[in-house]
């Protein structure tokens, strides 16, 4: 026997969980950019919201502990764009290296 209950981790309706904490935050610029990239990529037909969800659902249950909401979104957007052939894994790696060398803060790294 396994302890698999027949549904994947994201299908959490009805699960036992703790109290709802009334948490909120103002969205940072980088989060708004991730949101905008998702809307634009789906509007342009590069992938769908179902594609976004599929990659997030494949991340496994511990992503709620290890990542934030928009961390997961950019990871999924990136995976979908590589799958769509928009750019290659090699191009992504080179670009991320170049970005990281620009500075230690988001403000610095986001300025070319």
């Amino acid at each position: 026997m396994t302890d698999f209950d027949g549904k994947r981790w994201h299908d959490m309706g009805g699960d036992t969980a703790g109290p709802v904490r009334p948490s909120e935050h103002d969205f940072a610029l980088w989060e708004k950019r991730v949101d905008a990239l998702m809307v634009l990529c789906s509007t342009k037909g590069l992938f769908t919201v179902d594609g976004l969800r599929r990659a997030i659902e494949d991340m496994g249950p511990d992503v709620f502990e290890n990542t934030t909401y928009y961390d997961r979104w950019i990871a999924s957007i990136n995976q979908n764009l590589i799958e769509a052939g928009t750019y290659t894994l090699g191009e992504l790696g080179a670009k991320m290296d170049a970005v990281a060398k620009r500075g230690a803060t988001y403000g610095e790294a986001a300025s070319e």
Binding site: Y70, A75, M96, A98
Partner: peptide, 13 residues
């Protein structure tokens, strides 16, 4: 790391 990815993805697009 994920902010770095956002910048990279946006610039590649």
């Amino acid at each position: 790391y994920w902010q770095t990815m956002e910048i990279a993805v946006r610039e590649l697009l």
